[in-house]
């Protein structure tokens, strides 16, 4: 009985959490301009989303979002991994200071990060555009990469690096053959995290994107929604994003469960 109520409560909450997304997904299969009108089953919105034409600006917004996310995630992963190795080898007050600074972008609300960077770019007289958005994204993504890489370094046996040096490896070789293989899983999860954070971001982007007409998916949706009439093509787009994320998460979950089982089997 208790279990029944508990399950019922969970399903009630899930229904509340998923109802909005489901409605968007259902109405992505009809042509009606206004959401809520069902004018028969059709996949026209899906084909017109990819055929470009009228909604060329939407496609270029998607393209910008992906380019910014890939570049920002790549730079954050490199910067964050190098920084993690450095921080791991620091001691005492220096380490504490840099760790505190590293936490600031994660604790600050997005709007504060956005405004502070906006003020930086204006007072330096930098024109805002692609470069400033990417810089801003690197700023709030790198701390997460550092946090992903750090545990791998802490688990690593510190003597391996020294051993490689003693056996005649140059520091560069030791880095490539010893440290990087050890921290690689952390770097990969850091990259994925940075990528998703960048794609998702709206508050920091809008303050650093400038007025040159550059649009990412978030700013496009925002401008579109403010005009009142929501582009119908956003329905199939949201549905595709949702299904992609769903599949990705299920794959990650199944993989980690399988890995856990394998570990148990070898034990």
């Amino acid at each position: 009985m208790k279990k029944f109520f508990a399950q019922a409560y969970l399903w009630f909450l899930l229904a509340m959490l998923y109802a909005p997304i489901l409605i968007i997904a259902i109405f992505s299969f009809t042509e009606a301009k206004v959401l809520g009108n069902w004018t028969g089953f059709s996949t026209k919105l899906y084909t017109s989303l990819f055929s470009g034409g009228v909604h060329h600006s939407l496609l270029s917004a998607i393209e910008n979002t992906l380019i910014i996310a890939i570049v920002a995630a790549a730079f954050s992963t490199i910067l964050g991994s190098i920084a993690a190795v450095g921080i791991h080898n620091l001691y005492g007050r220096k380490k504490a200071v840099i760790n505190t600074l590293n936490n600031i972008p994660m604790l600050n609300p997005d709007i504060i990060t956005g405004i502070s960077l906006f003020l930086l770019f204006v007072s330096l007289g930098i024109t805002q555009g692609y470069a400033t958005v990417i810089l801003a994204h690197i700023t709030f993504c790198t701390p997460y990469v550092v946090l992903c890489v750090m545990p791998r370094l802490q688990q690593m046996n510190p003597n391996i690096y020294e051993a490689a040096l003693d056996l005649g490896a140059t520091p560069w070789q030791a880095l490539r053959k010893v440290i990087i293989p050890e921290i690689k899983p952390g770097m990969i999860s850091g990259f994925i995290l940075a990528f998703t954070l960048s794609i998702d971001d709206f508050a920091v982007t809008i303050f650093t994107i400038g007025t040159e007409g550059l649009e990412t998916l978030s700013t496009y949706i925002y401008a579109d929604a403010r005009k009142g009439g929501l582009t119908p093509e956003l329905r199939p787009l949201s549905t595709i994003i949702f299904v992609t994320v769903l599949i990705l998460l299920i794959v990650i979950n199944v993989r980690s469960q399988r890995a856990a089982k394998r570990k148990e089997a070898t034990r």
Binding site: L79, G80, I82, A83, V85, G86, I87, H88, N89, L90, I98, L101, N102, I104, P105, I112, T113, I115, S116, L117, L119, L120, S123, L135, A136, I138, T139, T142, V146, P171
Partner: peptide, 25 residues
């Protein structure tokens, strides 16, 4: 070549893009 030196680029980055912007507010 000292590994603790590798934290310096990020320290400079943090000063430029985290500390300085907050001071500007």
């Amino acid at each position: 070549l000292k590994r603790s030196t590798w934290s310096i680029p990020y320290a400079i980055f943090l000063l430029l893009f985290v500390v300085l912007p907050l001071l500007l507010i």
